[in-house]
Amino acid sequence: MASFRVMRRMFCAAAETAAAPVPGSRWERLKNSKAGVWCRGLVSDYKEACREIVVGAWERPIKASMYGTLLGGALTCFYTKPDQSSFEAVLLDRSNQLGLLSPWIRNGTSDGHVQSLVKLRNEGRLRHISLGLLSLVYQADYDPDSVLYEAQCSNLSVPWRELPQRILDVGFVGYWWVLDSKMKDYDVNQEEFKHLPAHMQLTSPPTVQEVERSERLHKESWLPPKVEEEETETKVVDREEESVSEESQAEEEQTAA
């Protein structure tokens, strides 16, 4: 009796297995799962958004070009913004340029600005901060490696409202604009000309004709001197006339004697 029941259960299980639907492949099961449905909906949304962007750009090309230009400019600014190492390299380069000049001909503004930055760098008080599209270099009160209580206490740190007064330079599209502006005419000392009259303190750039004339005279100065034949003949004739006049005067003197 027990064996009969076991056999019946086996036949019932086999019949249920045969009647049950055959499951699909693993890819179909993954597609029909919750994660698969969510991914398909996400891809469909992105596909629809891209289609709307293309249709909108085709219908309004001017607006689309403006947005594209702004996006490209933002990406360019982001990837070309200078970092702290570039600022230190530019600062050392400018310092070397001033070091090649005599102190008497250095521009006071350029020299003072570069010397102050070099001093802050040596003291470890220069800080760099990135704002996405541009970079800022500002002045701190202490070196970050200092063990002073004022340097390590967060409650005594510089508040953000004082940051505009501490900014030393702005880095944008690969340039440090304040440092470059301070280095303009770095080899011209304005103090040398302050005692001159007003009309002599200002100079105007030469014209094209003056530049060409200066170049022509410079080239001619390297040529050997030339003596023209006419000048030589004129000198010979003059000498002959002088000799004839001297002979006639001598004959007149002899006749008078």
Rank of each mutant, 00 (worst) to 15 (best):
6 V>C: 00
6 V>Y: 02
7 M>F: 07
9 R>G: 00
12 C>L: 02
13 A>T: 08
15 A>L: 14
20 A>V: 00
20 A>R: 12
23 P>R: 08
25 S>T: 14
25 S>P: 05
26 R>E: 15
26 R>P: 01
30 L>F: 15
32 N>H: 13
34 K>Y: 09
35 A>F: 15
37 V>H: 14
37 V>M: 14
39 C>Y: 07
45 D>Y: 08
47 K>I: 04
53 I>M: 13
54 V>M: 14
56 G>Y: 09
60 R>D: 14
62 I>K: 13
64 A>M: 11
68 G>V: 07
72 G>K: 15
72 G>H: 06
73 G>A: 14
75 L>Q: 03
76 T>N: 03
80 T>R: 08
82 P>L: 02
84 Q>R: 08
86 S>F: 10
86 S>A: 15
89 A>G: 04
93 D>W: 04
94 R>L: 04
96 N>K: 02
96 N>F: 05
97 Q>T: 01
97 Q>W: 06
111 D>E: 12
111 D>H: 03
112 G>D: 13
114 V>Q: 03
119 K>Y: 01
121 R>S: 14
125 R>S: 08
127 R>V: 02
127 R>W: 07
129 I>K: 14
130 S>R: 08
139 Q>G: 04
145 D>E: 13
149 Y>F: 12
151 A>N: 06
152 Q>G: 01
156 L>D: 06
161 R>Y: 15
161 R>D: 06
161 R>L: 04
162 E>W: 07
165 Q>Y: 09
171 G>I: 02
171 G>N: 05
172 F>W: 10
175 Y>E: 15
179 L>I: 13
183 M>L: 13
188 V>K: 11
191 E>G: 10
192 E>A: 13
193 F>C: 03
194 K>M: 12
197 P>G: 05
200 M>Y: 07
204 S>V: 04
204 S>R: 14
207 T>V: 02
207 T>I: 06
210 E>C: 01
216 R>F: 01
217 L>T: 00
221 S>E: 11
223 L>F: 13
228 E>G: 08
228 E>W: 01
230 E>T: 08
235 K>R: 14
236 V>Q: 15
237 V>M: 09
238 D>C: 06
241 E>P: 00
242 E>C: 05
243 S>G: 04
247 E>I: 10
249 Q>G: 06
253 E>Y: 04
255 T>P: 00
256 A>Y: 15
